[in-house]
Amino acid sequence: MTQRIELVINDRCRTVEVASNTTLLEMLRDQLKFKSVKPGCWRGDCGLCLVLIDGRPIKSCLVLAQELDDREVVTVEGLLDNGNITRLHQSFIEKGALQCGYCTPAFLLASEALLRRNPHPTRERVCESMNGILCRCTGYKQIVDAILAASE
């Protein structure tokens, strides 16, 4: 059983035919080939599949694709500014906030959402906002530093 939904992904209108049991993760990654949306646990524990829905960071493995009718989704590709990286990307690169890169899209999206709502967060607020995303490489310190530097 499929349903046609219309939504905006990274500023582009899309019409997608989705099955009722298709999750947003599957729609983005498998159907529409946004491979930056990473699977990691399929139960909301790790946060790697995070995307922004109407500006809010949400784990896409816990969302049905059909719910997205008439909504706006941003993946990490959508954070580029006319194809160029932004201050946030630059800050991640300069501070060494990425290693294997598997969690990087999720952290960038969550940081973007945080800084839009709270342009000058405290270190504690940054941690609290990012606790839903796991990283096994960096030890997190350089990610916190990158977000704080981007907020200055």
Binding site: K35, V76, E77, H89, I93, P105
Partner: peptide, 14 residues
């Protein structure tokens, strides 16, 4: 900076 940084921050790393 890392040589693979751009691929990784833009989501294009395979």
């Amino acid at each position: 900076p890392r040589v693979d940084a751009m691929e990784k921050v833009t989501g294009s790393a395979v």
